[in-house]
């Protein structure tokens, strides 16, 4: 069984920029702090599934459209 750690890449910053929202506005819509939004955008923190679903609902897309596995560093 291959137990390689998977890094997650987020398109949150792009989706947010497309809607011209600030981090604070997005944070308010999601019910989290601006610091949390920033940490997710910079890849420092992976959100929980409920929060990821909330984001998907907010942007009207699926979770996979926002978060994708990042294989570029390991292969």
């Amino acid at each position: 069984m291959d137990l390689v750690e998977i890094q997650v890449k987020s398109k949150l910053k792009v989706l947010r920029a497309e809607r011209d929202w600030s981090q604070a506005q997005l944070a308010e819509a999601l019910g989290v702090s601006r610091q949390t939004v920033n940490a997710i955008e910079t890849g420092k923190y992976d959100p929980s599934l409920p929060l990821a679903f909330k984001m998907a609902r907010l942007f009207g897309c699926s979770i996979e459209d926002i978060f994708t596995p990042d294989d570029t560093e390991r292969d």
Binding site: V32, Q35, T36, A39, I40, Y45, L51
Partner: peptide, 8 residues
């Protein structure tokens, strides 16, 4: 009362 990352 904190959000999930702040709680962590």
């Amino acid at each position: 009362s904190l959000d999930e990352m702040q709680r962590r």
